[in-house]
Amino acid sequence: MTAGTQDLDAADQLSAVDLDDLAAVDLERLRAAVAAALEGFLATQRRTLTGMDAALTAITEEMSALARGGKRLRPAFAYWGWRGATADAGGPPEDEAAVLRAVAALEFVHVSALVHDDVMDGASTRRGRPATHLGFASRHDEHALDGDPAAFGVGAAILVGDLALVWSDELLRCSGLTPAALTRARGVWDTMRTEVTAGQYLDLLRAAGGLPGPDGALTVARYKSAGYTVQRPLQLGAAIAGAGPRLFEAYTAIGLPLGEAFQLRDDVLGVFGDPEVTGKSADDDLREGKQTLLIALAELEADEPGRELLHEALGNPDADDEQFDALRHLIDSTGARARVEERIAERTEQARAAIAAAPVTEEARAALDALAVAATTRTA
């Protein structure tokens, strides 16, 4: 390597570090703005609900607890989708504070999906605390209410999830975006929420034996999580900005592979993650019997004893630690985990190449690339 090449490499490395630092600092600002938007909105809703009846305080407390957690990746992708569209947009720009409130509404869509998903999966924890249906079941016991605590908890959780979806609409509508921007945003918003709900059904169907194999697992991942995590938030930002079809296509080229890689990382963490970091037991996904790509690939490569183990322990709430450890060993020994890691790396690189080629501002390009790395190398 020549001295000139060494200097160039050093300059490139320094530039990358500076851009990453800039993106990281701005991400903290964005997270703070999203948190403030959610807290302000929830304060208003708290007054409304407690004005109806003091018993509704339980609903606002639960929603506040759920909204406080999370990485804010969806609002971050939407915000940078908007910022990246400035070179491709027509008309005057939207007020940034209004955009931040609008993208914060994505967090309520996410809360809704999490709460409903936990009910369907029978999950025990979420973000380091009892899942919503279990929390309300405990509340039923604490107040010595009549009837079945578990049924009460499930019913309350369904309503909390429904209310989160209602509030996502309200926060978007009241964000302060111009009427034209709201109209443009609605198309993406409606598509995203339809896909999430349809994806939840596909997940339910797969758990019942439909959509078998690796392809079925990837179909569920795309519609249940991947689309509304990256692709649709990016396109929401583009719609708010008034960008043209070229940018929407570029954001699809980024969003689909990156959203898949994000979900696959989530699947790996669900089985091999550190509970102290993830906020949930590493046994939960196995106990719930989640039919992820990890499981589909392990099943394809397992021998007869391995398939028997999958049949006996996966989705069995009475399975013990030894069986779950054996399942983790099976996933590793069949090469399923390694193949999923390879796919995560491939899809992440595909998304990063699409980011490099996208018609966005250089500032947005650096931020989106940093987000892509953060979304797929995270430990929680």
Rank of each mutant, 00 (worst) to 15 (best):
A3M: 12
G4N: 07
D9F: 12
V17K: 11
D18G: 10
L19P: 02
L22N: 03
A23M: 05
A33E: 07
V34R: 06
G40Q: 09
F41E: 00
L42W: 04
T50Q: 12
G51W: 02
A54C: 05
T57C: 03
T57E: 15
T60Q: 08
S64Y: 04
R74T: 05
W82F: 14
G84Q: 03
A85W: 01
D88C: 14
G90K: 08
G91Y: 04
P93L: 00
P93I: 05
E94V: 05
A98R: 05
L100H: 00
A105H: 00
V111F: 03
V111E: 06
A113Y: 02
D118Q: 09
V119S: 05
D121Y: 00
G122M: 05
A123V: 02
R126T: 08
R127C: 09
G128M: 07
H133V: 01
L134V: 06
A137Y: 02
H143E: 15
P149L: 02
G155I: 04
L165Y: 12
V166I: 15
D169N: 14
D169L: 08
R173S: 12
C174R: 13
T178E: 03
L182R: 09
R184V: 07
A185H: 01
R186D: 13
R186S: 13
T191A: 12
V196L: 12
Q200R: 04
G210N: 06
G213I: 02
D215M: 09
D215P: 09
R222W: 06
R222F: 10
K224H: 11
K224I: 11
S225F: 04
G227H: 14
Y228A: 08
R246G: 15
E249S: 15
A250N: 07
Y251N: 11
T252V: 15
I254V: 10
G255Y: 05
G259I: 04
A261W: 07
L264R: 01
L264F: 11
D266F: 00
D266R: 02
G270D: 00
V277Q: 13
T278Q: 04
K280G: 02
A282W: 14
D283C: 03
K290H: 07
Q291H: 12
Q291R: 15
T292G: 00
E299K: 08
L300E: 15
A302I: 01
A302N: 02
P305A: 00
E308S: 13
G315P: 08
P317Y: 08
A319Q: 03
D320E: 12
Q323R: 14
Q323A: 15
R328V: 00
L330F: 01
I331N: 02
D332S: 12
D332R: 13
G335E: 06
A338T: 14
R339K: 13
R339H: 10
R343M: 11
I344F: 09
Q350E: 15
A357L: 09
A357F: 06
T361L: 06
A367L: 01
L368M: 11
D369Q: 10
V373C: 00
V373T: 15
A375G: 09
A375D: 09
T376S: 06
